[in-house]
Design a protein around this nucleic acid. Structure first.
Length: 879
RNA sequence: AGGCGGGUAGCUCAGUGGGAGAGCAUCGGCCUUACAAGCCGAGGGUCACGGGUUCAAACCCCGUUCCGCCUACCA
């Protein structure tokens, strides 16, 4: 076995072994309890980033854990067709070839996208394999495959028939680059430095003007009114109810609406119903004309008069110039406001009037909200529930049509004769109002999130009634980042409840965002991206996964640096070497037997601890406290199993007694097996590698049973005895360290034990003290006097005198004891304060009071012993 | 503007009512036959600030301040 762990070859080997042996496969029907997680489907265009790595590591931990706990686990994988993102990629390819999608045509273009998907769409799936994900790949799905498309049509038609889907004129967020409408949440608002322009609108009948403030002067071409607040005294007595639109010199009315904020600007607001969502609303109440002056490319159209054909920002500049010339621009103030940008391509959004398809979300959201309120679905950590309710209770209708080509084409047909709209699962033969055969399908496709909203049941075979649906719906838990709580989780809740009559998942676990070492969000443009694949190459997948789990405390973002990962790689190596040690002492062909009569204190202790730790780890994973689970594994394996148990076991392993030797081998083997099982969900590769080398193991560790606390010895005495032994050894080591006694130099001891029982325990385990604290001989008894040339440490009420003939530095020893005294005095003071407080004695629980009293007595004994020691030293000094 | 999260050792962070913790870094001692990616030991904190509740507060409540994020239709 190599001296340090080499991850590369190991990882590939075992992943292939698991897949070849079908260990990731779920059973459609089974006697075992079901446990199902649907993967948040990554975009086909995606490559594995830190967010994916964290998200999928946590899911894999849960799945591997539950499998070992005996569940029928389905981790349902798949990818998302990612409408706009994928279309963008293929369009870029076309642009490089000097053509575009319009030249290619819709049908051919879609073919090209499928080809692209076939070629590159599996990239991220293979990256998930590198990460060790135990998905059931035989069930991989894609949001555009036949089954899922069928589910999409079914849902659309049923929602339409129920009146939950409608088509209407609305101001939508238009991306002039992607050429499509965007839902409100697909718009990112960014604070930007801009300007507030004060523009004069002259009164129609001569004499004076009204000044309005705007950030978008170019839209004035589409103004159809100026609004003021009816309570605004400044405008109460307007003699002329009309003003002239600057430049176009067109009369428009002054209207009164309470929406207008009197404090802002001049209290007069220009109204452009076709290019601003608020103005659109006001336009509706006042029946104003909607004049569209900017087109789908962000260019000024024919209605823009002299500015026709200009780009929108160029038009702004020109209008400002022209206003200045006509003395209609009063002033320009610097101004900061939040401007919407496309979340895909970052182009500035143009609010635009157009006809779109919508889902009426109100009734669906109400049910989805109720399910969480009633606790049917629980969100972890629970503070996200508030965010969820906030959104659900203020939800707006969902614009689901997109003017792109890649996606599920909306199953609606328009009759070219009579204009009737027909919605159906399959293309209708003729119009059902005029029987015409001249039908044309809607060219828009559905928002990508429409199909992902169905993911928890469409992947299981819906709308067919399948055994998978019966077995696995509702799924156990959804693991995701908070950034898609609205996009995805909320919509799955709505659709799941509506179409399945039940929640899609019992738990939602919201995990952190991975940031860089400075706490900044990782992004390509900032250049601070850490590539998970490089990390896996460099440190190994197990170290990487364990790091992510160890940092995944609930409710806080993760700051990831290579330093941290390096620390956990050391842990991986520690495990490797512990295994190496064990294997050196085990025989390949022998399965050593325990003989309980030969158990040492160390054996009884570690066996008891194995049971306790197994329980702690299992409980933490069940509660989604991944960091706690990881910390328990780390602390136990390194600082208990390796630092203490393996060191102590050497005594028997290297000894001559056959029975003791075999028992020690058996316990070492068992402890290692349990440690591997506890670690397996976090570190699948190294645990399998060691498992396969270890005698007494069968098949894959994946199919081994997770340790149950009832499997182990429960020996409370062993815990207490070990506590004493470790305390005494630590006390001796402390003296050695402080006195700079080299490890090569052994010492002798006088131990003054507090009781006969302790005396007996220490006597019985003297050999451990000798090896672990480098001790030659010791006299153990009670009431033994302190020898002159010695240093003393006190553990609980046991005094340990280390004989330091020729080595002792009295000044150093006095300093050491004074330090101990001042420390204990502080402790005593705290306890004493409580015990002399009548309120505490009367009101605190009896158990607590007793504890403090015991502690105080312990302190006080220790203190008097320390003081004795000190005065003893001072006496010697005087001589 | 509103909402959420955070401020604990030099750094990164655990810790939700009863004696302040871990890892890394620092300092001292060790190549002890699993591991120097290691072993043994040590130092280091007004738990952001101010009030309150309580016998008892890092933890609960109120206020202040700084940082981060999310939401939003003040042009």
């Amino acid at each position: 076995m190599a001296k340090s762990y080499e991850s590369k070859s190991v990882e590939q080997k075992w992943y292939k072994y698991w897949e070849d042996n079908g260990l990731f496969k779920a059973e459609a029907t089974s006697d075992k309890d079901p446990y199902c997680i649907v993967i948040p489907p990554p975009n086909v265009t995606g490559t594995l980033h830190m967010g994916h790595a964290l998200n999928n590591t946590l899911q894999d931990i849960l799945c591997r854990f539950k499998r070992m706990k005996g569940f029928n686990v389905l981790w349902q994988p798949g990818t998302d067709h990612a409408g706009i993102a994928t279309q963008n990629v293929v369009e870029k390819d076309l642009a490089a070839k000097g053509t575009d999608r319009y030249a290619v045509g819709r049908e051919k273009f879609i073919e090209l996208v499928w080809e692209w998907r076939k070629k590159y769409g599996g990239l991220i799936i293979n990256q998930l394999r590198r990460l060790g994900c135990s998905c059931d790949w035989s069930r991989e799905r894609f949001t555009m495959d036949e089954g899922l498309s069928k589910a999409v049509r079914e849902v659309f038609v049923r929602l339409y028939e129920e009146g939950h889907i409608y088509r209407g004129d609305y101001i939508i967020n238009w991306c002039p680059r992607c050429h499509t409408a965007l839902a409100d949440i697909e718009v990112e608002h960014k604070e930007k430095e801009s300007h507030l322009y004060y523009i004069r609108y002259p009164f129609k009948n001569g004499g004076g003007h009204l000044t309005v403030a705007t950030t978008r002067p170019e839209t004035l071409l589409g103004d159809t009114a100026v609004a003021v607040n009816p309570e605004d005294d400044r405008y109460a007595a307007l003699s002329d109810p009309h003003v002239l639109l600057p430049i176009l010199n067109k009369p428009i009315p002054v209207i009164f609406d309470k929406y207008v904020d009197m404090e802002f600007g001049t209290g007069a607001l220009k109204i452009t119903p076709a290019h601003d969502p608020n103005d659109f609303e006001i336009g509706n109440t006042h029946n104003l004309e909607r004049i569209k002056v900017i087109d789908e490319n962000g260019m000024m159209n024919d209605l823009a008069g002299p500015y026709r054909g200009m780009e929108r920002f160029e038009c702004r500049e020109r209008i400002i110039e022209d206003l200045k010339m006509g003395d209609l621009l009063e002033k320009i103030e610097p101004y900061q406001n939040a401007i919407g940008h496309c979340y895909r391509c970052k182009t500035m959004i143009e609010p635009l009037l157009s006809k779109q398809w919508f889902v009426k979300t109100g009734p669906l959201a109400k049910e989805a909200s109720k399910a969480v309120r009633e606790g049917k679905t629980k969100i972890f950590p629970s503070n996200w529930e508030g965010v969820y309710f906030e959104w659900m209770d203020n939800i707006k209708d969902w614009c689901i049509s997109r003017q792109i080509w890649w996606g599920h084409r909306i199953p609606a047909w328009y009759c070219q004769e009579c204009g009737a709209v027909q919605v159906a699962k399959e293309a209708p033969m003729s119009c059902n109002s005029c029987q015409s055969n001249d039908l044309v399908q809607e060219t828009d496709v559905l928002d990508t999130w429409f199909s992902s909203a169905l993911w928890p049941f469409s992947t299981l075979g819906w709308p067919d009634s399948t055994p998978e649906l019966k077995t696995f719906y509702p799924t156990a838990v959804l693991v995701t980042g908070f950034d898609i709580l609205f996009f995805w989780v909320a919509r799955m809740m709505m659709m799941g409840i509506h179409f399945m009559g039940d929640i899609p998942f019992k738990d939602v676990y919201i995990h952190a965002l991975v940031r860089d070492a400075e706490g900044k969000k990782m992004s390509k443009s900032k250049g601070n991206v850490i590539d998970p694949l490089e990390i896996m190459d460099q440190f190994g997948t197990d170290a990487f996964r364990f790091t992510l789990a160890a940092l995944a405390a609930q409710g806080r973002d993760i700051k990831l640096s290579e330093e941290t990962i390096l620390g956990y790689r050391h842990f991986v190596n520690k495990i490797w070497n512990a295994a190496r040690f064990a294997l050196m002492n085990l025989d390949e062909n022998e399965d050593p037997k325990h003989d309980e009569r030969a158990y040492t204190l160390a054996d009884r202790w570690i066996l008891t601890r194995l049971g306790q730790v197994s329980e702690e780890v299992a409980r933490a994973i069940e509660a989604y406290q991944f960091n706690e689970a990881a910390a328990h594994c780390y602390q136990f394996i390194w600082h208990e199993l390796c630092d203490w148990y393996l060191e102590m076991a050497k005594q028997e392993l290297y000894g001559e007694n056959g029975v003791s030797k075999e028992t020690a081998r058996a316990v070492v083997q068992e402890a290692l097996i349990v440690a591997l099982k506890l670690l397996h969900p976090f570190m699948p590769f190294i645990t399998e590698e060691i498992w396969q080398r270890l005698p007494g193991t069968d098949g894959s560790i994946m199919t081994a049973r997770f340790p149950d606390p009832s499997d182990f010895l429960r020996d409370e005495d062993a815990l207490k005895e070990m506590n004493l032994l470790m305390g005494v050894i630590a006390a001796i080591r402390n003296i050695r360290g402080e006195m700079n006694i080299p490890p090569s130099k052994n010492v002798n001891l006088i131990i003054d034990a507090k009781s006969e029982l302790d005396e007996e325990i220490l006597e019985r385990n003297l050999a451990y003290i000798q090896t672990l604290a480098k001790v030659d001989g010791a006299s153990i008894g009670s009431g033994l006097p302190k020898p002159a040339k010695s240093a003393t440490a006190i553990f609980e009420e046991t005094s340990v005198h280390v004989l330091l003939e020729g080595l002792i530095d009295f000044e150093e020893e006095k300093k050491r004891i004074r330090k101990a005294i001042s420390k204990i005095e502080k402790d005593m003071e705290a306890s004493n304060k409580k015990l002399s407080n009548r309120g505490f004695l009367e009101k605190a629980p009896a158990g607590i009071v007793a504890d403090v009293r015991t502690k105080f007595e312990g302190f006080s004994t220790k203190l008097s012993k320390l003081k004795q020691n000190l005065s003893f030293l001072e006496t010697i000094d005087d001589c």
